[in-house]
Design a protein around this nucleic acid. Structure first.
Lengths: 159, 159
DNA sequence: CCGTATCCTCCACGATACTG
DNA sequence: CAGTATCGTGGAGGATACGG
């Protein structure tokens, strides 16, 4: 997006899409719903490049979906917390995750489903990471896999 | 998106985002949920340029969210119908629309809410258009408004 | 009317390098 | 560690023109 203004439409769906911005933004929201708050937590979790993360974070703060909150003075450090607007996106994230679980679960080591305790979203690696457990990233990767052999979209410029 | 493969992640949310593709795709799905099936219905409804629509339609068919179905031989014409995968995106669209109704309803002529009869989604212009009524596009526009004055994103290259 | 082909622009992203 | 600055690229999307 961004090439044209979905905000210019009165349709609430389009305007929402414009607010949320890029797909990365939704993934950041999802991570935030999981309890992540810090720059490098997000970065590690998603394999996003730091400058892109900066941009997305800034955009989300500008749109009042995240709130930038200092947690340390010297050097200055910030946490990113969901606002009410941001938290209200949970049903969206859940709906997307539900669809993914139903329709994107064939092939290459099926995705593990919901957390039985919480009944919450569904990302075991993240859950483990939050709780401090080590994660077998051969089994599950949230960092980007270079050379995904079965994806027609995987295009590596440098190899 | 598209610069990197979200499919390469095991996370169902990311994979879903990759499947759905661009925001336009979700809007097309939404229109399809409203009952639209034909090329120019989509085009009129969203103000998308025809070639972009062609691309999005093709992508959606490739991803098995829409099905291309001939309805006329000479000249060959097609309708685009939701598959089960596509129809299953309804909760996603609804969640997004709900968020938009709650959080994007201030300013410039608030958005009218749900269709009382159907209880379904929430786009009055579309509803009217489907039912054949004329629509006051000064009041509600689904075509793109050039020069949206209050949107910092509205950037018009040619004026 | 229902699309498709071509060209071009713009912007999200990654790579890389840098700062406190 | 927690970011920011700069640069290059690919792909989405619009304009336009064309075809059945």
């Amino acid at each position: 997006m961004r090439h044209k203004s979905f905000s210019a439409m009165e349709c609430p769906t389009a305007r929402t899409l414009d607010q949320v911005g890029e797909w990365w933004s939704l993934l950041i929201i999802r991570d935030a719903l999981h309890g992540l708050t810090r720059f490098d937590e997000f970065q590690q979790s998603m394999g996003i490049s730091p400058n892109s993360l900066t941009r997305r974070l800034k955009e989300l703060c500008d749109n009042d979906l995240l709130e930038r909150r200092p947690y340390q003075d010297n050097p200055p450090r910030f946490e990113y917390h969901l606002t009410e607007r941001g938290r209200d996106l949970q049903p969206v994230v859940e709906a997307i995750a539900a669809w993914g679980r139903k329709h994107m679960t064939k092939g290459k080591g099926a995705v593990r489903l919901v957390d039985a305790q919480s009944g919450e979203l569904a990302d075991p690696v993240l859950v483990d990471r939050i709780s401090g457990k080590e994660v077998n990233t051969d089994d599950f990767r949230y960092t980007v896999t270079k050379n995904a052999p079965d994806s027609k979209r995987a295009r590596l410029p440098s190899e």
